[in-house]
Design a protein around this nucleic acid. Structure first.
Lengths: 205, 205
DNA sequence: TAGATTGTTAATCGATTAACAATC
DNA sequence: TAGATTGTTAATCGATTAACAATC
């Protein structure tokens, strides 16, 4: 199997979203050029992208079956087997992530939050529980989450990441605006708003 | 001047953050290899990156002056001249963005929020005002924000983006998980959590 | 002077785009 | 059959890495 680049990986959820829209409109077949026009990619790129994850070939003159594409994409993106996550740091951003409505659709289940402030602990309006950081190890023994979402202040991030990894987390999704280090074998993905803003600002000039 | 790639742009805020840390520790000079080790880049890449934005040359045997680097990066990234933004859709995520504590540091000032729900309107705890979407045009005539941060549900995003552009916004920072289209001359940057999650999930395998 | 670090030029690598044959 | 769309192979483009001369 060919290696799949990050750019490519970023595109797949956008394809999936579009295909679901088409499906709800009752459309069953789609060609690479139509997809490309809609999403702003070249048709060659669309073909390569879809070839890389499709279980069956497209049909010359007709295109690809949307139902099949959705199935393949959901399988490839892991939406079909649920992964669990905890949110570490339930401030404004952490709270938003803890209740982000689209994660369910992506197969990501937020099972708990952790914070050190007593006022934040307990059940949230949406029925999720925020535990004290002190209880992290014992709670993790029960829930065994796959992923830790880091939304603590930058100064706390590395410490909290270490704690999460020590307690069995295999992936770190870091929203704290700081560089963190993880050992071999642990997946790390950063969402850094300052980087995104830098791109926007540069385009504005 | 050479063109600067998006990857490169994403790295600059991370350099800046690191340099500020070093400065607060009283360090005045830094070499490309030390920077690379710390942030996980090659020293060649660091040199190219810094050359592209530096106003003065580095000093053989010594490295580069941190103070100068910070100044050059802040200038390049636009942190020195304040840009204003409005948040469209003050749900959990929008609320978090509206009060995100680091934006000030990046020279981004959130001047107002907009929502259509009456219960959300008025002053927030942190002293910012959420206006009704109905008043968008008239308020924008006063505040003339540069950027619109989009945090409405996906189904509303394109409509809201159009409204923002019609009222003079020059940049769209889109947090809604959907593909949107902007006319020529308008800057668009997407923060798509599903794309970021796709990368994390892939690394987890 | 010797050595560390710089800047520059060339080589490599990978992703995207282009060209084209295959097929329903 | 003709034409649209596919998959594959080659060309281009751009970013990263490597090599090396310049300099304090």
């Amino acid at each position: 199997m060919n290696k799949i680049s990050n750019n490519q990986l970023e595109r797949y959820p956008l394809y999936l979203k579009y295909f679901k829209e088409l499906e709800s409109e009752g459309i069953t077949l789609i060609s690479a050029s139509v997809i490309g026009n809609k999403l702003g990619y070249s048709q060659e790129q669309v073909r390569k992208d879809l070839q890389a994850i499709s279980s069956i070939e497209g049909k010359p003159k007709k295109g690809r079956e949307i139902k099949q594409l959705i199935d393949d994409l959901e399988t490839f993106l892991g939406y079909k087997k649920i992964r669990t996550a905890v949110v570490m740091g339930v401030g404004r951003l952490g709270g938003a992530l803890m209740h982000y409505p689209y994660f369910e659709e992506y197969g990501l289940q937020i099972v708990a939050g952790f914070d050190k402030e007593a006022s934040k602990l307990g059940l949230t309006d949406e029925g999720k529980t925020v535990y004290s950081c002190d209880d992290f190890s014992s709670i993790m023994k029960e829930i065994k989450a796959d992923i830790a979402i880091i939304s603590v202040p930058a100064s706390q991030a590395q410490r909290v990441v270490n704690l999460a990894i020590d307690n069995g987390v295999k992936g770190i999704w870091n929203f704290a605006p700081t560089h963190i280090v993880v050992p071999e074998g642990i997946a790390l993905e950063n969402v850094n708003l300052s980087s995104s803003l830098a791109i926007l600002t540069h385009k504005l000039k």
